[in-house]
Design a protein around this nucleic acid. Sequence first.
DNA 1: AGCCGATCTTAACAAATGATAAGGCGGTTC
DNA 2: GAACCGCCTTATCATTTGTTAAGATCGGCT
Lengths: 202, 202
Amino acid sequence: MLTLDTTATMQQQLRSAFSHWVDLSDSQWERLSSVFSARRTAAREFVSQPGDNAHNLYFVVSGLLRFFYISPDGKETNKAFVAENEFAGPLASAALGLPLYFGIQALENTEMLVAPLADFSALYGADPLFERLGRRLAEQQLVRKELRMRSMLEKNARERYLDFVSLNPLLAERIPQYHLASYLGITEVSLSRLKRGIEDGV
Amino acid sequence: MLTLDTTATMQQQLRSAFSHWVDLSDSQWERLSSVFSARRTAAREFVSQPGDNAHNLYFVVSGLLRFFYISPDGKETNKAFVAENEFAGPLASAALGLPLYFGIQALENTEMLVAPLADFSALYGADPLFERLGRRLAEQQLVRKELRMRSMLEKNARERYLDFVSLNPLLAERIPQYHLASYLGITEVSLSRLKRGIEDGV
DNA sequence: AGCCGATCTTAACAAATGATAAGGCGGTTC
DNA sequence: GAACCGCCTTATCATTTGTTAAGATCGGCT
């Protein structure tokens, strides 16, 4: 159970994160923060399932989430990992008005702040600054997807793995190998093989 | 050489395209259209090269452009194809303030309207509607990248090819196979092989 | 007609990755 | 301690994709 004190700390962390994107006055912050509420999830629990009609914007205070697709034949593929101080949300599917097409699972005990995307985007019309915030969040997601897409097109699995570890050394330790393999677009068996080759090569 | 008349037609086409994203008053349209200018490029000509400091937003009036990365060892990889009535621009790299990391080549004789991205984004502060337009363009790019990423992760080359052809039957005819192969993340030899397998299977 | 450049196909072989099955290892639970 | 569970590794074999090289086709140009 969250105490008031804990919630206040989490909100402070959220405000600090937002301040990287836009300058918020106190009243703007008040309005913005009012759409977020705290939520905790234990490791391995599912935060939401594909098909849910719960379009939310997530801010991870502590812990780690994985976002995953499920193909028609039931296979899961990891789309993203989101750790503390990061945002995530279905801006793309919300833009299309589609139901949620991915699921979210906590890989660790996770504290997050959650805003219904409808509430968040309702702010856009209220103040151009929120519109700007929305644009910048979308642009940030664009940057990530762009880099990942390029990596998929230009590099083989071995290079993608080495890049991931070198860019996210701490995160790589926290993600089970079979989830990381799925994120890289290969099987866990193949990743295990790649790692052996890399170690032997040293 | 563009006649006034032709330019007017092109601008009309641009306005119609923008109207899918936001409702523009005449004065808003006037301000917005003032940052665009017409440009023509012959088939096979390069519109810009990686490393250029020319961040532009493109609207293709007629023809076809390909956007491509170049890896350190000089290999080209196609990032996107943009045909008539579509927008494209380095929203991601612009968000990061990075130099342009991809090149653009016309695959057909192409007419386009071009706006320096700095001029376009300068409009954001002038009117929340432009900020909204910017957000929606970013979200649209997000949707495309999302779908493509998912396709790369969940499907093999054969399925990606079939999906592309079935979603873009006309476009597929206009793109040389070796460029399409690069877009799909495989070699032209491999794509040729896949096509044979598909035909034989029929 | 003859040449040439751009595109596509094919073949033969190599390398990368997938599929399946088996087992190991550490931690938790009963 | 025994039985699990989650995770990782290994081996074997099949499939997919890459590499290289050669030739075919088509159009435009001289």
